[in-house]
Design a protein around this nucleic acid. Structure first.
Lengths: 127, 127
DNA sequence: TTAACTGCAAATCTTTTGCACAATC
DNA sequence: GATTGTGCAAAAGATTTGCAGTTAA
């Protein structure tokens, strides 16, 4: 079932907490398979997104991030350090569905805040 | 008050309906000022975003888009053709605020659907 | 005149792709 | 043996940036 690289990439994205970038995954995988190529990582990641196994997140600045949790959840983005946490905002779906009408397919909700660390450290927010 | 280019860029983004890309704005502005440079467009656009005069939208594929409407509103994205419309989903803010806690700064809600045209035309959705 | 802004082109960064070779079925 | 996937390197796409020259205050 699949190649060595594919297995490693699957395993890696599961093991990496948070929302790793393709490069995070690449570097991690390189530890196990030093000749693995960036292109291979992207190809596999994209295939997994296509298959609905993982999600791709687009960030304001910097590279895309990948999310191995595919159950319904939202994201809490720190405008200071860029850190992304998972969060659940209940009750949104009904509102959205009503507004979208026919053809509705889903939604993405991004909550912005300044995390505790950034508030404490006086980190200037980036937007 | 500002340069000729800045004025044109301001005017252009106001006049362009929808959610134009930097290139859309560049091409339009070129009509008035044939030597205007892409870098100038980006620099001005970024300054306007910084100043809170416009918003920047990140799209899954393709370049960023700019939105001259800064009042609270959400986006309805067609997964078929990529078209972005404005939409209002009321009642979300209270839910989000409660979930975010201290440090809350705002949210972005993207509703995905297949627009009428794409449903009729049998356009395969892109995600 | 000084400071801010522009045009141009090159650089950067992220992601994709062509192709010859290797691994899998 | 045929197909599918990989490594490598080059290409592509979007955005930023250095710098010399221009424009605005």
């Amino acid at each position: 079932m699949g190649t060595r690289q594919s297995a490693i990439i699957h395993r890696t994205i599961e093991s990496l907490a948070g929302h790793p970038t393709a490069e995070d995954i690449y570097l991690q995988a390189k530890g196990e398979l030093p000749h693995i190529a960036m292109g291979t990582v992207y190809r596999n990641l994209n295939a997994m997104v296509e298959a609905g196994e993982i999600r791709k997140l687009h960030t304001p600045e910097g590279p895309d991030r990948f999310d191995s949790i595919t159950t319904r959840h939202d994201h809490l983005v720190c405008d200071g350090c860029g850190r992304i946490d998972d969060v659940m905002v209940d009750g949104v779906e009904a509102l959205v569905e009503a507004a979208a009408g026919e053809g509705y397919r889903g939604y993405e909700l991004e909550v912005h805040h300044l995390c505790e660390k950034c508030r404490a450290g006086g980190v200037p927010d980036r937007r």
